[in-house]
Design a protein around this nucleic acid. Sequence first.
DNA 1: GCGCTGTGCGATACGGTGTATCTCACAATA
DNA 2: TATTGTGAGATACACCGTATCGCACAGCGC
Lengths: 244, 244
Amino acid sequence: MATPSEPGGEPRLVWERPEPPSRPAPSPLSRDGIVRAAVELADTDGLESVSLRKVAAALGAGPMRLYGYLSTKDELLDLMADAVYGEITPPGPAAEDWRAALRTLAHRTRQAARRHEWFADLLGGRPHVGPNALAYLEASMAALDDAPGFGHIDTVMQAVSTVNAYVVGAVRAEITELRAERATGLDERQWQDAFGPYMGRMLATGRYPTLVKVVTDATHPGPDTTFDAGLNYVLDGIATHLTH
Amino acid sequence: MATPSEPGGEPRLVWERPEPPSRPAPSPLSRDGIVRAAVELADTDGLESVSLRKVAAALGAGPMRLYGYLSTKDELLDLMADAVYGEITPPGPAAEDWRAALRTLAHRTRQAARRHEWFADLLGGRPHVGPNALAYLEASMAALDDAPGFGHIDTVMQAVSTVNAYVVGAVRAEITELRAERATGLDERQWQDAFGPYMGRMLATGRYPTLVKVVTDATHPGPDTTFDAGLNYVLDGIATHLTH
DNA sequence: GCGCTGTGCGATACGGTGTATCTCACAATA
DNA sequence: TATTGTGAGATACACCGTATCGCACAGCGC
């Protein structure tokens, strides 16, 4: 009785809201159009400047128009995330081995996040159960399901979860660092001026001896290398646990 | 010339803003008090209901008062995150091996996020360079720095980055799932009603055969098990690459 | 062709947010 | 005691997500 939806039907789910009653002409709006506009806006100006008002304005409509297609802003964000999952094409089901398949998916996820940096902000933040996200999951698990060594489906799940966790964390870290560099690095001098003294003093406290060693001795490999090396660690760890 | 800070001094950094000029009495406020109030608020009502106004009100002050101690809301969020890092006590520097040390840190991070769920929202989202976050990093790297098999500091960095990425992703996933369960699970019936039909129809499309298998066959181990098993994968993967 | 009726759109409104600015009471100094 | 400087609070602004409401207009019956 507490449910606001019609008693006869089952509750409307986010992912299958129908296009509004197909009045012939006067609506140049559509869910896809709205999502596309929002994605574009996020790509150019960042996620924090995606507002229903601006998205609507970009489509030449009043803000309230959107509520015919969405019921909440969070729903729009979910749709945006699923749109990005839709860009991550699964590897061909051909005779790749499981490592190659997972590696491909991971790298394509990373690249999608580099195209749409805001995707990193959404990663892991809400349940991703849109059709494209499910397809992504399906592809991951299908790649392992009939691979040798993965006995029970539980093993498959565990492996996929682990890789996904790594990808989420690594992508977030990379995008965060990328933004930090962009914010300070516009001219390199500012970094020296702003963080140099702070970090310098922090490190001079003697409380972080190993960090000092990192700052002085580490060769900072590029993000491609770092991401792939970490991915290798994870995949190797999984391989270790396969029924020989 | 464009810098707004005083030309003589170096720019003020977030982490070392001094307590306001120590006028003797009239200010019952302090950075720590503000952060404590904000943390408390986030613990009870969630991060999205942490507003400068509410935090100030909780301290019996007007909203603008806080700007004497913070320069921005993001700064408050950074301080909150660093406060949580402060709760993650590093493992004793005793004769633990590197795996035990990293494992301890990872589990304590997870537990901190279970105490402060909003911490998961902040994880990996902005550069964490507060003193406590640096101490956390230092502890991780120190545990590997003199462990056998980690030759160059680059290897240490790579290993720490990988584990951290996993921890971030896994913690986020766990908190997200926990929230989803709590939202629907208040009575279990609603989950069946809300997601059951949607998922059922999705799976019935035949596009997700492996997911179907998961739903029907998988035994869902608890989050403790899942987290630890994934962590083991990662650690084993790292061990694989040590100079024997 | 005309009048009615229903509906979807837009304007308006509300409570909230982060933050800039302005005013004024008060405390310390001359 | 008069003056000055400072910091706290009130006020203000632009913007947000979203509820509500009134109206113009399309579709239909006569």
